[in-house]
Amino acid sequence: MKRDAIMLRPEDNVATALRDLEEGSVAVVGVMEDCREVTMGQTVNYGHKFAVRDIAQGEDVLKYGEVIGRATAAIPTGTHAHVHNIESLRGRGDRKVA
């Protein structure tokens, strides 16, 4: 089956779009040898990520089976996951205690 998006590890909670995915469409998400379907809650462009399950505010965001940041707002399934709702936990000079 042609994949519309890819998850690197089964435990990941975001997938990467391999084409522009329209709101309301059903995306085929490849994960290792398997596929699953996610209904897009929002249009997500090529190369960008979306949640493959509901992610709560404060939850770790996982890609490659590793933590890539923390959700700063709830990210519902099928919606865009990016800088507007994920913060980095590293290189945070703004949080440094003097």
Binding site: N45, H48, E66, I68, V83, E87, S88, R90, G93
Partner: peptide, 20 residues
């Protein structure tokens, strides 16, 4: 916060969200 410098503005446009 180093974001904007790493990842760069271009990286972010390309879909990369954090340095991690």
């Amino acid at each position: 916060d180093i974001r904007g410098g790493q990842p760069t503005g271009g990286n972010i446009k390309g879909g990369l969200t954090t340095i991690e």
